[in-house]
């Protein structure tokens, strides 16, 4: 494997994040390579979302270094992070669509704010994004409160991709979707990643999507990355938490062949 040759999209070094006296992320280091899909797993409440939100600059860190596409995140609040923000798109767990805008307007919003173009072109691009995530132009006229869970996630993904970012952060993209919709969403992420050449950082609990779409999987336990590598490698890991995670009853049921 030519692992070392791939340039790094996200570089996290010695990161510490905590709230009050509780340390959530404890001297964590992680590299995400350009063009890969990295899945992050960890216990509920174990700091996965905190790690993601720190990397995108929403939570202040205690110490350490975060470098996303060459920008230092969180060192000087505001300006550098804002610059970097144009290089990534974020899919929040609940979609976080603007409830006063239609689906189409939601997707057009980043375009309107960050690029100069005619309204006609903007609508075409936004509509193209909606169709790329598998929605129709009729769906574009709906308000977020009229969308189903799966459609909300798709619109949110289209909005995250509006500016063709280099990196996409996905916070539990398949949670709350039925297995068929979740499978479709996985395929969608894989396809888009291929066509648009994205780097995907995905927080997930969905063992099926870890297995099918992720190039590498990182396991977060006790505030550290305890194992990282392709799925097959993680399945061989000896770390007790990783073992419990991937060899529990539910996991065995899902992947009898891998074992």
């Amino acid at each position: 494997m030519q692992e070392q040759e791939l340039p790094v999209a996200i570089h996290v070094e010695d990161l510490v994040v905590g709230f009050g006296r509780r340390i959530v992320i404890d001297h964590l280091s992680l590299d995400v390579r350009r063009g890969e899909i990295l899945g992050l797993v960890g216990a509920s409440g174990g700091g996965k979302s905190v790690l993601m939100r720190t990397v995108i600059g929403l939570i202040a860190r205690r110490s350490g270094k975060i470098d996303v596409m060459g920008s230092d995140i969180g060192a000087t609040p505001g300006c550098r992070t804002n610059q970097a923000a144009q290089k990534w798109g974020v899919l929040f767990q609940q979609g976080a669509l603007f409830s006063s805008l239609t689906a189409l307007q939601n997707v057009a919003f980043p375009l309107r704010e960050n690029a100069t173009m005619s309204d006609e072109l903007m609508t075409e691009i936004a509509n193209a994004k909606l169709e790329m995530v598998g929605l129709t132009s009729e769906d574009g006229a709906k308000f977020p409160s009229e969308l189903s869970g799966g459609m909300t996630k798709r619109v949110a993904l289209a909005r995250a991709l509006a500016l063709d970012p280099a990196i996409v952060f996905l916070d539990e993209p398949t949670s709350g979707l039925d297995p068929i919709a979740a499978g479709d969403f996985d395929t969608l992420i894989k396809t888009l990643q291929k066509t648009l050449g994205l780097t995907v950082f995905m927080v997930t609990h969905d063992l099926a999507s870890l297995n099918t779409v992720c190039d590498r999987v990182a396991a977060l336990a006790d505030g550290k990355i305890v194992a990282i590598g392709p799925m097959s490698e993680l399945l061989r890991s000896e770390h007790p938490w990783v073992k419990a995670y991937f060899h529990g009853k539910r996991s065995m049921m899902l992947q009898p062949k891998v074992m």
């Binding site: 509509n127 193209a128 169709e131 790329m132 129709t136 132009s137 291929k194 066509t195 648009l196």
Partner: peptide, 15 residues
């Protein structure tokens, strides 16, 4: 190529 192919499909229906 993939991207261009993908965009061939979109915005086909004129609402």
């Amino acid at each position: 190529i993939d991207l261009i192919e993908e965009l061939r499909q979109v915005n086909r229906r004129h609402d």
